[in-house]
Amino acid sequence: MGMSAGAHLAKRGVSTLLIDAFDPPHQEGSHHGDTRLIRHAYHGGPAYINMAIRAHQLWNELEEEIGETLLVQSGVLNLSSPAVYSYETRLEESKSLGVPVEYLDADEIHRRWPGVTVPEDYMALYEPQAGYLYSERCISAYRRSAAEAGAELLVNTQVERLEVSLRGVSVYTAKGTFHAGQVILSAGAWFQTLEPFLSLNIQPVRKVVGWFQPTTTRFDAGRFPGFTLNTPEGGFYGFPSLNGAGLKIGRHDGGLPWNPGEPIAPFGSYEEDERDLRRALENYMPEAAGVLNRGLVCKYELTPDEDFIIDRHPVHSNVLIAGGFSGHGFKFASVVGEILSNLAVNGTSSQDIGLFSLDRFK
């Protein structure tokens, strides 16, 4: 979110400094692991759907600017047990906003994608224009875009504290103190390191993903879409096998709390790391439940309602906040950067961001 905001601001001629505790793209946040889904027929109503549509447009613009593929329109198949989730409201809202969607029953799901085996009462919402983003490529692209537009980047630099005065905002680091009229905070799973200047209702959580080797080519990229899977056993998401890497699957719910600065247990430290992912494949995509090729740990930063926080500091109006993206925010990074840029320069955004206000936690 910060890299995107920096690029948008620099392109508008704003003097911009980006400070990162690491050297992006890196593995200390929520953007590594090769891919992230981008969907348009979104839960949460029109605000999310309109943001997803704009995000897709901005990713395409970044692709043209950088000359590199960032987004693949593989389609996304959203599968659900009716006991867990119904797509009826999302279907109506998406169609009303011009998002192409198809509503499929279990027989049609299996006919189109024979590798998928779901009970007869399962339904699917298929989005043919959705797909996945190459997440680390996206970070690198915005980094390059920001630099070419004149932004400065200070890496491997931890922010030690912030102070606000009549002069503006001062940011203290081991590499010097920096002053600005406005500051954007987008610390991801590391927001706790900014306390007591800012205390947010965000819980960092350890999450895992795995790449499993299918026994068939049915799950290869170009033949199989990205997917989400809502089941009584949990909520999952995944990607086709890219260049033989294996079908990638993660679990959206669950996970273990983590605190910034603490060691994070590697994949396989807990029995459920592989077990839960493999069980979902065995139940619903059995031909994809082959050898585990790779496992990886990343971080979610969850708000209580899993909606984002995009707002101003409750005391300091010249401090903008973007956080709590709750494991489903990456796809919106392009439009969130645009929103933050507009808030910083114009004071307003054309996107409806009322859903993301801090006031909702009072």
Results as ranks from 00 to 15, higher is better:
residue 228 T to Y: 04
residue 228 T to F: 06
residue 228 T to G: 13
residue 228 T to I: 10
residue 228 T to L: 07
residue 228 T to A: 09
residue 228 T to K: 00
residue 230 N to R: 08
residue 230 N to P: 01
residue 231 T to G: 07
residue 231 T to C: 05
residue 231 T to F: 06
residue 231 T to H: 00
residue 232 P to I: 03
residue 232 P to N: 06
residue 233 E to M: 06
residue 234 G to T: 05
residue 234 G to L: 04
residue 234 G to P: 03
residue 235 G to D: 13
residue 235 G to R: 11
residue 235 G to M: 13
residue 235 G to A: 14
residue 235 G to N: 15
residue 236 F to V: 00
residue 236 F to M: 01
residue 236 F to W: 03
residue 237 Y to W: 08
residue 237 Y to V: 00
residue 237 Y to H: 00
residue 237 Y to C: 01
residue 238 G to L: 06
residue 239 F to K: 02
residue 239 F to G: 02
residue 239 F to M: 04
residue 239 F to A: 05
residue 240 P to Y: 03
residue 241 S to M: 13
residue 241 S to E: 09
residue 241 S to Q: 08
residue 242 L to W: 12
residue 242 L to I: 15
residue 242 L to V: 15
residue 243 N to I: 07
residue 244 G to C: 06
residue 244 G to S: 05
residue 244 G to L: 08
residue 245 A to C: 11
residue 245 A to D: 08
residue 246 G to V: 10
residue 247 L to Q: 05
residue 247 L to R: 02
residue 247 L to E: 04
residue 248 K to G: 14
residue 248 K to L: 11
residue 248 K to S: 12
residue 248 K to P: 13
residue 249 I to G: 02
residue 249 I to W: 00
residue 249 I to A: 03
residue 249 I to H: 01
residue 250 G to V: 13
residue 251 R to E: 14
residue 251 R to D: 09
residue 251 R to T: 05
residue 252 H to I: 08
residue 252 H to W: 12
residue 253 D to Y: 03
residue 253 D to K: 04
residue 253 D to A: 11
residue 254 G to Q: 02
residue 255 G to E: 14
residue 256 L to S: 14
residue 256 L to Y: 04
residue 256 L to E: 15
residue 257 P to H: 00
residue 257 P to L: 04
residue 258 W to H: 15
residue 258 W to D: 07
residue 259 N to K: 13
residue 259 N to E: 08
residue 260 P to L: 05
residue 261 G to I: 05
residue 261 G to R: 05
residue 261 G to N: 06
residue 263 P to G: 14
residue 263 P to A: 14
residue 264 I to S: 09
residue 264 I to P: 05
residue 265 A to M: 08
residue 266 P to M: 12
residue 267 F to N: 06
residue 267 F to P: 08
residue 268 G to C: 14
residue 268 G to Q: 01
residue 269 S to L: 13
residue 269 S to R: 03
residue 270 Y to K: 00
residue 270 Y to L: 10
residue 270 Y to W: 09
residue 270 Y to C: 07
residue 270 Y to S: 07
residue 270 Y to I: 08
residue 270 Y to F: 15
residue 271 E to K: 14
residue 271 E to T: 15
residue 271 E to P: 09
residue 272 E to A: 15
residue 272 E to R: 05
residue 272 E to D: 15
residue 272 E to V: 12
residue 272 E to K: 04
residue 273 D to C: 12
residue 273 D to I: 07
residue 273 D to K: 02
residue 274 E to F: 07
residue 276 D to T: 11
residue 276 D to P: 04
residue 277 L to D: 09
residue 277 L to M: 10
residue 277 L to W: 14
residue 277 L to K: 02
residue 278 R to W: 15
residue 278 R to S: 15
residue 278 R to P: 14
